[in-house]
Design a protein around this nucleic acid. Structure first.
Lengths: 197, 197
DNA sequence: AACATAGGCCAACACGAGTTGGCCAACAAG
DNA sequence: CTTGTTGGCCAACTCGTGTTGGCCTATGTT
């Protein structure tokens, strides 16, 4: 069984003929969720965007929650960041987050939904817990202050993301990329490395 | 006509016998909207909290949108802030926002809803436009930089509100009030008064 | 050629939501 | 006491949604 493969001996998952449709659905879902959150998005609308029948979404992703989970699966990959030079970590972090946000619209979706859905909020928190706090622990003076310092950094970059990508304040969207790095970089740098005020 | 008043010659609105119910509905609505946003909140649930019939909500507030509008009517009152001493404006602003947020749960509601509703987002933006930018213009070196500086301040305090009151990150909730002022105060101060980096 | 299977669509169900209109009881004015 | 008005409740309607099961048609295997 499972002979219908693509020629080479696959050890992963068999390439299904419907993979194109699956991807189309996922792309449409990401776009909709990023634009409108969770509740306001209808499976029918996503299906219409993907030019398939709503029941296909159910077949491939189980239910609406499953589709959302598949649409926002992403890893910010903070551990892979270069931590040197140490006095540049603030600017490096801000730049990394900006790139992340501009390339992955699912982050906007996650944020929109996290505002009202505890599960999505927990997913965001897990990034703080498993990636940002450890990073702060490696950098900060007193290790027991790592959660506080990491929380301040999270609030900084999420605040920018909120006003720029979610609420879409013109004054925030007007800021240039390097302008943001110049302003927020020192802030994050201070939160991570400065002595307690 | 209009004789059924409360004795004194009222020039405002006659005190209706149903004012107590109106207030109860509004309180329940604020609580629900602050907890769950807009879509997930049902008029039926609010009515249950207020121990009245759902149709009463309609009678008094027209429809769900009208109820929400009445529930989040609030003014941050930034123009009344003491702007002196000038080197304390950052800390003053942060303290003011903290108080505001802890006393008015409708701000949390507005933020939850703003994440997915353009109208609510516009309401938040109007605060930036009509109160924060003018304040930045009065303080900042170059007036044409006021929108950028104000946007950075908004992103700072909204970022904290997001992680602390909306997403409810434990690391952010653990921060003490004066601790926050000590960390964010200098940040806001710099955004408002420091020379362009 | 016959058949099995997977991809896709259609029509319908079930249910919860916002909203509506009419009925009843208390209160106040005449 | 009668009568109009106000506050409140009940039952129903309508609509959109997530979700389901059955049917059709390619595709590819034997």
């Amino acid at each position: 069984m499972f002979v219908g493969m693509t020629g080479t001996t696959e050890n992963q998952q068999a390439a299904r003929r419907s993979d194109a449709t699956r991807a189309t659905i996922l792309a449409a879902a990401r776009e909709r969720f990023a634009a409108d959150g969770y509740e306001k998005v209808t499976i029918r609308a996503i299906a219409r965007d993907a030019k398939i029948d709503p029941s296909m979404v159910m077949r491939y992703y189980g239910n609406k929650a499953g589709l959302f989970a598949a649409a926002v699966a992403i890893d910010p990959g903070l551990p892979g960041l270069p931590v040197e030079p140490r006095e540049e970590i603030g600017r490096t972090l801000v730049r990394h987050f900006l790139t992340l946000w501009e390339e992955n619209e699912e982050l906007t979706a996650l944020m929109r939904v996290g505002a009202t859905d505890p599960a999505a909020a927990e997913r965001m928190q897990s990034v703080l817990r498993e990636q940002l706090i450890p990073l702060a622990r490696r950098l900060g003076p007193e290790p027991d202050q790592a959660p506080a310092r990491a929380a301040l950094c999270a609030s900084t970059v999420l605040g920018l993301a909120l006003t720029r990508y979610v609420l879409r304040f013109p004054a925030s969207m007007a800021l240039g990329r390097e302008e943001i790095v110049d302003w927020l970089g020192p802030t994050v740098q201070r939160y991570l490395t400065a002595p307690t005020p």
